[in-house]
């Protein structure tokens, strides 16, 4: 039996266990879900609204993390796709008369279709070129929201009747809130399932080296399409819920600030870390709401935060969590340089 190993040292994982799983990722996420579940029982309507917004951004950030953090594709299209989701669901309700429960999945399907239309030309692009092409798409989408008056209702956007949850015995705000919570939990669980499977490993392989990925029979084009599709699903669902939460859809919600905000969540959380994206989404939404009324400060603050994280903590929140909480394991995250 050969051992080309120098000395087989004990894996760190064994030491971790003793310090308890209580501070691990799963219990932390469970506590988070529990807190969100009881929030409407004790909070005022504004706080419930902020909580709901946070849940929507959890979906968005976890979805973007699949494309950006796991697959390593620098796409700026997600703010616009979020908009497509909101517009599609909203317009299907307002102008096509579909009920919300039907408009949301159909709107998501439309978002995926448009996401794929962007992805197909983007498949051949990498890095900076991909970034430029997707920024161009984002600007084009915004232009369409503003100028295609006959469909999008132009600059002023449109207002819808609140979604009706009386069939479930819930008020609109409570109904949207719990729907967002359930979808967020399901979509985060789905992201974990995907990440831990051969699909997730193929995505990370793609991120790390296309050449090495191909050498293990990973089809680059196909894997990229999977990543773009998944991210578009999350953006579509989040967009539909956003329209349902606000009952108003206006173009300026989906400008460049939107994509900076989403990028911030993924980077602050830690590229590739699902838990990190979710936690950062909640933190940044709370922060943003805290700074409401100081629009300039919001944008400058986010920019500084993004820059600071990239410079000083490229591994993101999750790397700090892994360092300080021994029970915290986080598969497949980029991890920065440890």
């Amino acid at each position: 039996m050969v051992t080309l190993s120098n000395e087989p040292s004990a894996p760190r994982a064994i030491k971790r266990r003793n310090l308890g799983w209580l501070v691990g990722r799963r219990p932390a996420l469970a506590v988070g879900v529990l807190l969100f579940a009881v929030l409407p029982l004790m909070a005022n309507p504004y706080q419930v609204y902020v909580g709901n917004l946070a849940l929507i951004y959890v979906i968005l950030a976890v979805g973007l993390n699949i494309l950006l953090g796991l697959a390593g594709q620098l796409s700026f299209a997600n703010g616009a796709l979020f908009g497509v989701g909101a517009y599609a669901t909203g317009l299907l309700r307002l102008d096509a008369g579909l009920p919300f429960w039907l408009a949301l999945p159909v709107g998501t399907a439309i978002t995926v279709a448009i996401g794929l239309a962007v992805a197909l030309p983007a498949l051949r692009l990498r890095g900076l070129y991909l970034a430029l092409a997707t920024v161009a798409f984002a600007q084009f989408a915004l232009w369409t929201f503003v100028h295609w008056d006959s469909v999008t209702h132009g600059t002023a956007g449109f207002v819808m009747a609140p979604v009706d949850f009386t069939a479930l015995g819930l008020r609109t705000t409570t109904g949207i809130y719990y729907l967002s919570l359930v979808l967020a939990v399901l979509l985060v669980a789905a992201a974990y399932g995907i990440m831990r499977s051969r699909v997730g490993r193929a995505l990370v392989a793609l991120r790390e080296s296309e050449v090495a990925a191909e050498s293990i029979a990973v089809d680059i084009t196909r894997t990229k399409i999977v990543a773009y599709t998944l991210t578009a699903v999350y953006a579509g669902v989040a967009g539909g819920l956003f329209a349902g939460l606000l009952n108003v859809v206006v173009p300026e919600s989906f400008n460049l600030f939107q994509i900076v905000l989403q990028f911030c969540m993924v980077v602050v959380g830690g590229l590739g870390s699902i838990a990190g994206s979710a936690i950062a989404a909640v933190l940044l939404i709370v922060l943003q709401e805290g700074l409401r009324g100081m629009q300039d400060l919001q944008e400058i603050g986010l920019g500084l935060l993004l820059l600071g994280m990239l410079l000083f903590a490229p591994g993101g929140l999750v790397q700090a969590l892994r360092r300080w909480l021994p029970g915290w394991t986080e598969p497949h995250s980029r991890g920065g340089d440890e």
């Binding site: 051969r198 490993r201 080296s209 090495a212 050498s215 029979a217």
Partner: peptide
């Protein structure tokens, strides 16, 4: 070496089983 960063050694080898 083109091992995939962010994955453990075991996960790297499992990635090889893609096909």
């Amino acid at each position: 070496s083109l091992l995939f960063k962010g994955m453990t050694v075991l996960e790297n080898v499992m990635a090889g089983m893609h096909q």
